[in-house]
């Protein structure tokens, strides 16, 4: 569905890539990384809003150069903040979107509007959460094959967030649709994502399925002197004890005097960003 090969983009103080990534049909892929890691840059590049300096992006087996309109008709895109005309009401905005998308599904749009209780008043007067929900509804209302969502759940209350995530699950059920969404709320990804792409300082550290992460990333804790020779992706030393992120087969740790727990995405982000740091006990 989405194939990215060797994408690079440079700014004076930031370089993205080279990024290689594949998004198969029927899966939800979470794009995760700290603020400024390059998630939005990558998403804007996939949307052709930022022309890359090198590399190839293929969506549905097509390239923007030849099939820009056909590609965009099959994408439902949500910006991090409101991009709609904020003096318009949701129904007026929907009339514009209906003109833009030949596959606009009014029944689904009305169902979602009712479900999420979006009020009929100028978009600027909606709360931040309602604006985000409205953008999400419009992306789900034109039978897109790929949803690309840039931080869609930030600013939403937990109940609406849960409902939106349920909608995402329902959306990919038929098996021929996919979702790519970036977030730094890792608990959202743990609920719905099948695949995770982790970006750090503009580079993809891994792009794999959730099971693979559960199998290969663990938090290990133990005495500092006993763990000095253990290779960790990041470690936090508190006087005599160390905890850190271990990547690899945990059967190799048999015999070590350490405790081992599965790493959450937040743990991975934390230790990847932090690297090795010592911390005095307070």
């Amino acid at each position: 569905m989405l194939q990215i090969r060797g994408i690079e983009k440079s700014y004076p103080k930031f370089h993205l890539g080279p990024v290689d990534m594949t998004q198969p049909e029927g899966y939800i892929m979470g794009l995760v990384g700290e603020n400024g890691a390059g998630k939005s840059t990558l998403i804007y590049t996939i949307m052709d809003l930022l022309p890359p300096e090198s590399g190839v992006i293929e969506l549905f087996g097509r390239s923007y150069r030849r099939d820009e309109i056909a590609i965009k008709q099959q994408i439902g895109f949500v910006y991090e903040d409101n991009c709609f005309y904020d003096n318009l009401t949701p129904s007026a905005m929907a009339r514009l979107l209906r003109l833009s998308y030949p596959n606009w599904d009014d029944a689904n749009y009305q169902r979602l509007m009712k479900q999420f209780g979006i009020q009929e008043k100028p978009l600027r007067k909606l709360s931040k959460g309602q604006k985000a929900t409205y953008a999400f509804i419009t992306a789900l209302s034109h039978r897109a094959r790929l949803l690309i969502l840039d931080e869609p759940t930030s600013g939403l209350d937990p109940i609406v967030r849960r409902e939106l995530l349920d909608e995402l699950r329902r959306y990919v059920e038929p098996g021929d649709r996919s979702v790519l969404f970036s977030t730094h709320i890792t608990s959202d990804l743990e609920q719905v994502a099948d695949l995770i792409t982790f970006i750090h300082h503009g580079r993809v550290l891994f792009s794999t399925d959730v099971e693979d992460i559960r199998e290969h990333y663990h938090i290990v804790k133990g005495r500092a002197d006993g763990m000095a020779s253990l290779e960790l992706l990041g470690r936090q030393t508190k006087q005599t004890h160390v905890q850190g992120l271990y990547q690899g087969d945990i059967s190799r740790l048999d015999g070590w005097d350490i405790s081992i727990e599965p790493a959450t995405l937040e743990d991975i982000m934390y230790f990847m960003k932090r690297g090795d740091q010592d911390e005095a006990l307070s």
């Binding site: 949307m47 965009k72 910006y79 005309y85 998308y101």
Partner: peptide, 19 residues
């Protein structure tokens, strides 16, 4: 005039129209 929305740089290029 669309205030801070900048539709030529945000909304419109994300819709199915070529630049």
């Amino acid at each position: 005039e669309d205030g801070k929305q900048m539709p030529m740089r945000r909304l419109l290029p994300s819709l199915p129209f070529s630049r």
